[in-house]
Design a protein around this nucleic acid. Structure first.
Length: 628
DNA sequence: AACACGATGAAGGATTGA
DNA sequence: TCAATCCTTCATCGTGTT
């Protein structure tokens, strides 16, 4: 195992006994100080290697630190592709003497199914580990992680469990499968087991934290595989190296200028591979996705990747302007479905640039009627008489979670007051900039103000006072609304469900917030049979619950506070009760993706935004269960 | 609840150079 | 003339402290 580059030997800490697994006192200490121990390793390795994050990335992929350091030394830090190739060559040569089972084991450990690996090895030959990985990543990885129909029989969680087990059995063949599958397998044992089969302790701990204490080994390995895929993605598809999406119709070849980029970025620019396709994901302009109700330009046909074809239907949402590479990664996880980027300014008076990954049909969409007001002046007619000619806005910017405070509006008043008629250009510019930044509207002479919560509700397509009461204060309301769907936009996409589910729909709503999905479906006239709503905020759950009662819903609403509580068992119980879900819908937190976050815009690895992987995990579980 | 707190990256016009 | 590069403008489901 070590020869294959799978981390340090932990066999000292793990002993098999007749009772299954017993843990020596040594290992308890190690695990209790897991973080510290890991930290120490990192420090010592970073002394050898100049770039510890690069090292971590490859170590995370399962190569040993020693090999990674050597590969980086050989190739320099700049080209992660070359480093990866070298690493693969190293491991190919070390495993060449043994059977190819170790090679297979390594790829299986990286999260690919045994079947897929065998196929890829057969296709590329044993010696060609780089092309095997390429094949696996490019064509098969996602199918493995989220089995398509043709693989449903062989490529399941039990498959994971089985292949992982084979590795485990190698360690000590006296152990018995039943003992490992014992539901009483405690947390420590699970952690040890995961590290033993080659996962990093940090990955395993994270998985256990995310998947919850009752999660099975299969769920845990699935989560880790998902995270590793993200890392592999980063390594194989560097930022400039992203394939374009086909709805990127306004794609223009661009390169960053170097005038204000740091050294790091400059290095990336220099790192041009031969035959490098300088392709990047660009947002469509205009940002209208497959079409909007008011524009004749419509796309009504698309070919979904086979792995994405339902059931259930899924609909995932997040901010369009995420850090580079994030949408590529999310798309790769969600069965290679291309995101549909839509700006809600085509549906209402406020911009809201969002990407949606879904497998819904796109023909015969219908908008909610009546159309909401589509300019600021239509939405807020009373502001018209105060609106200066030099404030040329007709649409508001994105409605965010924070609003301007009194000091902003007061500084505007003070800037304007000395001028009887048109203020000088510099003042106009200052005021205009503040108004745009904070989405201010004119409510009097020299007087601007942020929108009221009920005005935001209206713009986003919610009923008046939707977020009012039930313990929600003003701040809560802004926050919940800022994090919500724009109902008209989402409803337009969901409208195709109306004819498909005339007798009602079962919905799994993840990160429900204030119930944008539920409201959209209700307004479309799609009966809500059973809705399982997962939402961490109690205030939001109360809002959805009271809306549910106010609108006299006849179906069942089930609240779950935490996505991480939603494991296989829980899902199975829910699904056997309802007969499965027709739609899995949700937008995971954008905190670490949103441009306004100056402190922790950490991408998909960020604390909150990594919950995307829970969306993926749960969707994948539902899909698998519904295929069996 | 008020307040202070930049960075990232898209877009597009202007300039440069072959 | 065209394409690459330079440079400016703009938007952004936010966080931490008081």
């Amino acid at each position: 195992m070590d020869q294959n580059g799978w981390g340090g030997d932990t066999s000292d800490e793990l002993e098999m006994s007749d009772d299954g697994i017993s843990i020596s006192s040594n290992s308890r200490v190690l695990l209790a100080n897991g973080e510290a121990a890991l930290g120490t390793t990192e420090v010592s390795s970073s002394a050898d290697s100049p770039n510890s994050s690069l090292t971590d990335r490859f170590v995370g992929m399962g190569f040993s630190e020693k090999l990674v350091a050597q590969a980086i030394k050989e190739n320099g830090e700049k080209n992660s592709n070359l480093i990866l190739e070298t690493l693969l060559q190293y491991s190919a040569s070390t495993s060449a003497s043994s059977s190819n089972s170790k090679l297979i084991g390594r790829f299986v450990g990286m999260g690919f199914s045994e079947e897929m690996v065998l196929k890829a090895v057969q296709e590329n030959g044993e010696g060609n580990t780089d092309t095997i990985l390429e094949t696996l990543l490019t064509y098969s990885a996602l199918e493995e992680l989220c089995p398509a129909q043709q693989h449903a029989d062989s490529c399941t969680y039990s498959d994971h469990e089985r292949t992982s087990f084979d590795d485990f059995m190698d360690i000590d063949s006296s152990s018995e499968t039943e003992e490992i599958k014992n539901p009483d397998f405690d947390e420590l044992s699970k952690l040890l087991y995961l590290t033993k089969i080659g996962y990093l302790e940090a990955d395993a701990s994270l998985a256990m934290e995310r998947c919850g204490p009752d999660s099975s080994i299969a769920e845990l390995t699935d989560f880790i595989c998902a995270a590793q895929m993200a890392k592999a993605d980063e390594a194989l598809y560097p930022i400039e190296d992203v394939r374009p999406f086909c709805n990127d119709f306004d794609y223009k070849k661009r390169r960053n200028s170097g005038y204000n980029v740091g050294k790091k970025k400059q290095m990336k620019l220099e790192k041009k591979l031969p035959n490098d396709v300088d392709e990047a994901l660009h947002l469509p302009n205009p940002m209208i996705g497959f079409g909007i109700p008011t524009d004749p330009y419509q796309i009504t046909r698309r070919t979904l990747p086979e792995a994405a074809v339902g059931p259930p239907y899924f609909y995932y949402e997040n901010v369009a302007l995420a850090p580079k590479g994030v949408w590529r990664t999310m798309s790769r996880f969600l069965y290679e479905v291309e995101p549909e980027f839509v700006d809600s300014k085509y549906f209402c008076a406020a911009a809201r640039k969002r990407g949606y990954i879904h497998n819904l049909p796109i023909a015969n969409r219908a908008p909610l009627l009546p159309f909401p007001p589509r300019t600021i002046q239509e939405a807020f007619p009373s502001t018209k008489k105060w609106w200066p000619s030099w404030d040329t806005r007709t649409k508001l910017n994105c409605l965010q979670t924070c609003t301007a405070t009194g000091s902003v509006t007061d500084s505007i008043r003070r800037a304007l007051e000395p001028h009887d008629d048109e203020p000088p250009l510099s003042v106009q510019k200052y005021v205009f900039e503040k108004c745009r930044r904070w989405n201010l509207v004119w409510i009097g002479r020299n007087k601007v103000a942020p929108l009221e919560p009920n005005e935001v509700e209206m713009l986003l397509g919610f009923p008046r006072d939707h977020t009012r009461g039930g313990g929600a204060n003003r701040k809560d309301r802004y926050k919940s609304l800022g994090n919500s769907f724009q109902v008209d936009t989402v409803a337009y996409h969901l409208s195709v469900l109306k004819d498909m589910f005339p007798s009602g729909i079962n919905v799994l709503s993840l990160f429900s917030g204030i119930g944008g999905a539920e409201v959209a479906l209700h307004r479309l006239g799609v009966p809500l049979k059973n809705v399982v709503s997962v939402e961490i905020s109690e205030v939001n759950r109360n809002i959805v619950r009271s809306w549910w009662e106010e609108t006299n819903q006849r179906g069942t609403l089930i609240d779950i506070p935490n996505v991480q509580e939603l494991d296989g068992d829980r899902l199975e119980r829910l699904m056997s009760r309802f007969g499965g879900f027709d739609l899995v819908i949700g937008g995971s937190p954008c905190n670490n993706l949103a441009g306004s976050n100056r402190l922790h815009r950490d991408g998909l690895e960020g604390k909150e935004s990594s919950l995307f992987f829970d969306y993926y995990r749960i969707l994948n579980l539902v899909r698998e269960m519904q295929r069996n």
